[in-house]
């Protein structure tokens, strides 16, 4: 009994000592963590903290002339029409692409999941090809394909008699954002397809077979058996796709740079322009751009939290998780 008490009274001190001793004992293991931590700190943690600090400054990003202005940048941003429009465009772009991309890839996934489809691998590769193609290459190809002067797509539309004049897909302020949304969906559908195919793998073959013996038609199996089972995956896939759609910078920067007349300037492009490439002889405003970044980051974070809550709820309802 006394031995037990002795042990308990010494326990916390022993643990404290033990932790330091344990770290020292496995110092080699910790050494291996250092490179990763350094990179993570330098490129993720530091910019996050720094941008919040910069957002309180008036600063060009170069030179020593920094001036602390408090929340001035934020106040200005909320009245900046370019900022608000870019904000709106980013979310419009996401709202347009995510459901479209998820729907198209789901249809492809259901078709390609059929084991009787002999050329399934070929089709999967074809759909996945744009994913692995560099954005810069896609930008060039898209510009040529959609060109209003001698582009093949306009050629087809004109030949078919659908339009009387060539359509300037990337040059029209009304069309450009939707055109880019289409290109974005085409480029990334392959990734969503893989997610859906993985979800479909969770449906056991026996369910299809049982339904087949019951005389249930293929579309009925899809609607009443397969879709309800894979529905919980939609939340996760939607979340991943939404984050991808908000990170559309490379595609827009390499095609339109936000133009024409800022019509495709989404948030990231706006931040980049203000911070590094201002037009009309203006000075770069790193502080102002940082404030925009912080606000946008907050918005995305709120969206993510909503979706995580939705995932939890879906999981709770998911019959497979019992």
């Amino acid at each position: 009994m006394s031995a037990t008490e002795l042990h308990i009274s010494h326990a916390p001190a022993a643990t404290r000592q033990g932790l330091a001793a344990r770290i020292w004992k496995s110092r080699i293991d910790y050494l291996f963590l250092v490179p990763g931590l350094l990179i993570f700190g330098a490129f993720i943690v530091w910019p996050l903290i720094a941008s919040e600090y910069y957002s309180l400054l008036t600063w060009t990003g170069f030179g020593a002339a920094k001036k602390f202005v408090g929340l001035q940048n934020y106040r200005e941003l909320l009245q900046d029409e370019f900022f608000l429009n870019a904000f709106k465009r980013s979310f419009l772009f996401t709202l347009a692409t995510v459901p479209l991309q998820m729907f198209i890839s789901l249809v492809f996934a259901i078709l390609l999941n059929n084991k009787l489809l002999k050329l399934s691998t070929l089709f999967r590769t074809m759909i996945f090809l744009p994913v692995v193609t560099p954005v810069a290459v896609i930008a060039i190809v898209i510009a040529l394909m959609l060109s209003p002067f001698n582009g093949p797509i306009n050629g087809l539309l004109l030949d078919a008699g659908l339009f009387e004049r060539a359509v300037d897909f990337l040059g029209s302020p009304q069309l450009v954002l939707w055109t880019l949304a289409g290109v974005f969906v085409w480029k990334w559908t392959g990734v969503t397809l893989i997610y859906w195919l993985a979800a479909l793998q969770t449906v056991p073959d026996e369910l299809y077979e049982a339904a087949k013996l019951d005389g249930v038609r293929t579309w009925q199996v899809t609607v009443f058996v397969v879709l309800p089972i894979i529905a919980p995956f939609a939340v996760v896939i939607g979340l991943i796709s939404a984050i991808a759609a908000l990170n559309v910078f490379p595609l827009i920067q390499s095609t339109t740079q936000g133009g024409p007349f800022f019509a495709s300037e989404v948030m990231e492009v706006f931040i980049f322009r203000i911070a590094f490439a201002p037009s009309g002889g203006m000075v770069p405003q790193l502080g102002y751009a940082s404030a925009a970044g912080v606000l946008f980051g907050l918005a995305v974070m709120i969206l993510t939290i909503f979706q995580i809550v939705a995932v939890r709820r879906a999981r709770r309802k998911d019959p497979a998780n019992g």
Binding site: P204, E206, L207, E209, A210, K212, L213, D214, G215, V216
Partner: peptide
């Protein structure tokens, strides 16, 4: 299969 007059019970219940 649905018209053969058979019904099947699977190992994994299905």
């Amino acid at each position: 299969p649905s018209e053969r007059g058979t019904a099947m019970v699977f190992q994994t219940y299905a």
